[in-house]
């Protein structure tokens, strides 16, 4: 029984990690290549969810909605890059933080105006509603397995693009040595637009995947973006592999902390206090890990190949 619970929780942690990876992947590339701190990256997560939700009700098909919503989110990302991000790449990080903080407010209120404050629940097709039983005691929602599958497929795809294609080569070169790529006469501006929009679309995909579980809501991206930053700092800015492993570490810590920490705390404090403290302390753990990594190995666990 105990091991069955542990396995279930590990799968839950994996699913959370995969989701974090989808948000962190674009963030780490944008950060690594353009040296651009994009707090508004989480907004694409939200916008993807809302676009997808709207399409689900129009088309009556979740899969079709996702397939259409991804390119639409890509367009939103592209427009945001052209209108705002592009003009401040050259500025310092402080300006990035402030401008994208402003973007968050604009996106959040925009969604409020367009879709209202009440959030949007997204129905799943029947074939995703059930559970998959691995044994009599290990039973996992099929939809969560679907998230894991989609996430792994995207991760694999990204990995192949980054390692095997010409664009990927430019991305890698950009992440480790920006001036070199520019000096080669590559149209760096288009590369930036492409990476930004693709990152937005992947984050949007994550939002689409989570909203049948938690509903789409205003501000959903702001909760995840800070954790996504933790992920890319742990993994190493600019590294897809780092983002993947960082996301899994954070997903596991969070899930296992919520599962087991209260039992640990009950040994040393009252039940009531343990139940209050455990979730907060498990949330704290990831920041402790991040601070430790920054202090000891600021470049992260898997920094992109050094220049």
């Amino acid at each position: 029984m105990e091991s069955a619970l542990l396995i279930t929780q590990l799968l839950n942690g994996l699913q959370l990690g995969i989701l974090l990876f989808l948000v962190a992947a674009g963030l780490t590339l944008i950060f690594g290549i353009m040296d651009f701190v994009n707090l508004a990256h989480g907004s694409f997560y939200m916008i993807g969810a809302y676009i997808c939700g709207t399409l689900v009700y129009l088309l009556d098909s979740f899969v079709l909605a996702v397939i259409l919503a991804v390119p639409l989110t890509l367009v939103v990302g592209y427009v945001a890059e052209r209108l705002v991000a592009r003009s401040i790449y050259a500025r310092d990080h402080l300006d990035h933080v402030l401008a994208t903080f402003g973007l968050i407010l604009i996106f959040d209120t925009g969604v409020h105006l367009l879709w209202g404050a009440e959030g949007m629940s997204i129905p799943l097709p029947d074939w995703l509603q059930g559970q998959v039983a691995f044994s009599s005691t290990i039973e996992v929602p099929s939809y969560r397995l679907a998230i894991i599958a989609v996430g792994l497929a995207v991760a694999l795809g990204l990995f192949l693009v980054v390692t095997k294609t010409r664009i990927g080569m430019l991305i890698r070169a950009g992440a480790s040595n920006r001036t070199m790529v520019q000096a080669l006469g590559i149209d760096i501006k288009n590369l930036f637009s492409l990476v930004f929009a693709a990152g937005a679309a992947i984050a949007g995909l994550a939002g689409m995947m989570i909203s049948p579980i938690t509903e789409a809501s205003i501000g959903m991206g702001n909760d995840i973006i800070i954790v996504a930053f933790v992920v890319i700092i742990i993994g190493g800015i600019g590294s897809i592999k780092g983002a993947f492993i960082g996301a899994l570490i954070v997903g596991m810590i969070d899930t296992l902390g919520r599962s087991y920490l209260d039992q640990l705390f009950k040994l040393v404090m009252s039940d009531q206090n343990a139940e209050t403290a455990a979730p907060a302390i498990s949330a704290m753990l990831i920041y402790i890990l991040m601070a430790a990594i920054l202090a000891v190995r600021p470049q992260g666990l898997f920094p992109p190949k050094v220049r």
């Binding site: 839950n12 959370l16 938690t214 899930t255 919520r258 599962s259």
Partner: peptide
């Protein structure tokens, strides 16, 4: 909003 760990418990 994600209660996966709690529901498993």
């Amino acid at each position: 909003l994600d209660f996966s760990a709690e529901l498993a418990k």
